[in-house]
Structure formats: C-alpha cells, structure tokens
Design a protein around this nucleic acid. Structure first.
Lengths: 131, 131
DNA sequence: ATGGGTGCAAATCCTTTGCATCTGC
DNA sequence: GCAGATGCAAAGGATTTGCACCCAT
C-alpha cells in the first residue's frame, strides 16, 4: 500500500516524528531546511498531503491557528487548553464502551470507523498563572 | 452577563439558529443580507466573535474548510463523515463515565472543564454511493 | 525524450484591520 | 459632540497552483 518515499518526503516525515509536539507546516519546513536547504514550502505542503493520504501521519485541526500534523497515527485522545490553546496527547485512551459509540453512531445512521475524545480545560501552566 | 444585542447582532444570531446545519460565516452573511441589506461581511465576523465570546453560539473547526458556527451551546457530540466531510450533531450524548474523563485529564495535569466526542465514519448518503 | 518531482512566485481563500462615516444618546 | 458600531477596501496569513526546469530513467 505504502510506496517508497523520496529523500524530501523522508526528511519531512522525520521532521514530523522528531518535532516536540504537533508541528505546523511552517515549523516542519524550517526543520527540513537543515538537511534539505533547497526545499520549498510548497513542496512541504505537497508532501504533507501525500503522507496524510498514505496514513503515515495525521492532520489535526483545532482552535483558529494553522493546521498541525501528528506523527502518532494510532487512535488516541487529546486535551485542549482553553487558555493557551495548547494541544496535548493523552497517554491513555479514555475508557469508552464500544456499545455506547455504536449506539450514538446509529442515531444518525453513521457507519462508525473511529472516534476521538477531546477534553477541554486548563493545562498545568495556565492553571498556575490564574492560580 | 449577556448584554443586549443590536439589530445586526440579532439578525446574525437568528441566522445561525435558523440555518439548516452548521453555517459558515459566508452563509450567515448571505442570509442576514435578506433582512439587513447594508451589512458587510466584516461586521458579520465581528458579531460572530462577539456572540461566541458571550456564549450565544459556539465555534466549530473540523476538516480543512472554513470556520463554522453552532447555535447549540449545550455540550453535545459530533459525527464527521470521512467521505463528504459533513458534520452531524448527535442527538444523544455518548455515555461516558465522569471518572474516566477525570482520570484521563489527570494524566496530563489538566483541569477539566468540558469534553467532546467525535465519531468518524460514513454518513448514510455516502454509504449508499460506495454501497 | 519523457515524466514525475521541485522551486519559485503568483494566486486564492478566509479572516482581520484601518479608517472615515454614521448613529443614537 | 462622543462613543461605539459599521461599511468598504485593503491587508494579512495559510495554503494552493501555474509553470518552467531538472533529473533519473
């Protein structure tokens, strides 16, 4: 299914994997330029779409900022800070009975493929600031 | 807490409420122009932010399209069609034990305020097309 | 020589902002 | 007359596209 990636694509994929959290296209571009100085931002975008299409990575969208990318393709949940907008991976899945999901999906006739839980609240550093 | 809304703001709020699903700013603008022909798109955006800030409505972001608005401010869950990108409100909340949420929130030190479940799958009409 | 991949710049889309004007008080 | 709201047009930021070029086949 997955085809071989050329050098640019490998560099982009590695940048997503090594990024501290969920990088934007621009951050990825800056990182990739270290190893591939000639690469253009448009190419980074083209490769990101390719990688998403082939399920190497996932695309994330939240708050009003730009699109972010996630190297963790396995199903997992997120927490969003309502103060700083930060997005955090939850290390453990929220325990959710499968029947409850199926039941909810059936109410709108949806054929269920996956799901995600998003927690909203205040992250540790934002809690301190407003103590 | 909530202040009185002027005529433009009332028209925008009503447009969000009467829209079939989750309208974009542009769709709201088109609707509002029927009753307030002089209104500008910038004003619609300004009012939408105001209404979000005062919790009259909620802002939604998903897929790669533009921002959408939701008249339903009470907590509820959504289903996203992976084929057509459609977003559907779930009429019933996904049954999720509160302890599970709190536990998940604690793993990242987050002070929990709210949450949302997102189901991903295929909506009825998209199921038919790919039968 | 051919085709896919690429860099660059221009274009596009959504959203925000600057500013002069208008409105109600 | 003032403060806040507004319309318009221009600016801004993220992403996409057009196109000529380059490289490996």
């Amino acid at each position: 299914m997955k085809e071989t990636l050329n050098l640019n694509a490998q560099a982009v994929l590695e940048a997503v994997h090594t990024a501290p959290s969920h990088p934007t296209a621009l951050q990825i571009y800056e990182t990739v330029k270290h190893t591939r100085p000639h690469i253009g931002l448009a190419t980074v975008y083209r490769i990101l779409h390719l990688l998403v299409g082939q399920q190497y990575i996932k695309e994330l969208r939240y708050s009003d900022e730009s699109c972010r990318y996630d190297a963790k393709t396995a199903r997992h949940d997120h927490a969003v800070c309502m103060a700083c907008g930060g997005l955090f991976d939850l290390p453990v899945a929220v325990d959710l009975p499968h029947e409850a999901l199926e039941h909810a999906a059936q109410t709108v006739g949806m054929q269920l493929a996956s799901h995600e839980v998003r927690l909203y609240g205040y992250c540790p550093s934002c809690q301190q600031q407003n103590h």
